[in-house]
């Protein structure tokens, strides 16, 4: 995508800095801590995927960042400005919340863009010109004068993204941007998110679709029961859960004596010519010694997917909570 999407980023201040956000709601069975001490930072050109199961606190956090929900504790700075105190800080923000429900359905796409452009401070001529450019870039040029309600869901989602981009905000907040889209539209949406980052936009997206996070994010933050349980580049997270997992492929099946020796070392031996071992380098060389002189065809270090990392993290946290509850 060309520089028409480029935001105006005034300086090297982080685009987003959220510190210690907490939110508690009154539920039917007493207070519920929806968000517990979440801190995030996002720089220009970065995509941060906010991952978590349903009800983990993702949307509440995003809404606190843009001031739609007031936190009980913590603070937010968008390019150094506080959106809780000054709505002017919101000129830096574009948000797509709840998919296509950000649009006026009786207006056409170009009218939606003109209107939102003007109320966000663009002169009408510029809003119209930029609206047309965005529609062309998103492949909606031929739909510009149709009623929004007649567009497909994928097109409406693209239009919602265009509306959020109309004033070139440095920070984009996308709440479940691919939810409910067909495969083709979801692929297009992921490509657009990457292009936004390449154009210098900081993008915070929430999703519970792990493939989305893995494909588009520079960093992933995993939230569970309102608390951040992990944050980092997807590769680092997956490496954390894949560390020390080796798969050895052998030319011949092992004899019974060697197989027994490997069992003593705790090595899994699911197939006659395949060994899976979890452990450090010392174990690796112990195994190599044990199987000598067997011919090794291939050694592969296993790479976990983000899905496996996510599931393990969620499980670890769940086990930790259960243990803590039992101790209490």
């Amino acid at each position: 995508m060309n520089n028409m999407l480029s935001p105006v980023v005034p300086n090297s201040t982080p685009v987003l800095r959220a510190t210690g956000l907490r939110k508690r709601y009154m539920g039917k069975q007493g207070p519920v801590e929806a968000v517990r001490g979440v801190s995030l930072q996002l720089d220009a050109g970065q995509v941060l995927a906010f991952l978590g199961p349903n009800g983990a606190g993702k949307t509440t956090t995003v809404k606190m960042i843009c001031g739609l929900v007031l936190p009980d504790e913590g603070e937010v700075r968008i390019l150094g400005e506080n959106p809780m105190q000054s709505s002017r800080a919101l000129r830096h923000v574009g948000a797509v919340l709840e998919g296509n429900r950000n649009l006026y359905w009786h207006l056409t796409p170009i009218e939606n863009l003109e209107y939102y452009g003007m109320i966000r401070g663009l002169p009408r001529r510029e809003a119209r010109q930029r609206g047309w450019e965005l529609l062309e870039q998103l492949g909606l040029g031929d739909k510009a004068r149709e009623k929004t309600h007649s567009l497909s869901r994928g097109m409406q989602q693209k239009l919602a993204l265009a509306v959020a981009l109309i004033h070139r905000p440095p920070l984009m907040l996308l709440d479940e941007p691919t939810l409910g889209l067909d495969v083709e539209s979801a692929i297009a949406m992921k490509r657009m998110v990457r292009e936004l980052a390449q154009a210098g936009q900081a993008v915070l997206l929430t999703t519970h679709q792990l493939d989305v996070a893995e494909e588009v994010a520079d960093r992933v933050a995993i939230i569970r029961r309102g608390e951040l349980v992990a944050e980092g580049p997807p590769a680092a997270l997956t490496a954390r859960f894949a560390a020390g997992t080796y798969i050895l492929e052998l030319a011949q099946p092992l004899d019974a004596v060697t197989a027994r020796r490997l069992e003593e070392l705790g090595v899994v031996h699911p197939e006659p010519r395949k060994l899976t071992l979890r452990g450090d380098a010392q174990l690796f060389w112990q195994v190599m010694e044990a199987i000598r002189p067997a011919e090794v065809v291939a050694v592969q270090r296993d790479r976990a997917t983000l899905t496996e990392a996510f599931l393990q993290l969620i499980k670890e946290e769940s086990d930790a909570s259960d243990t803590a509850a039992a101790v209490r």
């Binding site: 800080a89 919101l90 000129r91 923000v93 919340l97 709840e98 429900r101 966000r120 509306v163």
Partner: peptide, 18 residues
């Protein structure tokens, strides 16, 4: 009802001015 109330709040003017 339409679902655009939050978008109006998200303008630099604030909802009441809109």
């Amino acid at each position: 009802q339409v679902g655009t109330l939050e978008q109006l709040w998200l303008t630099p003017h604030g909802l009441w001015r809109v």
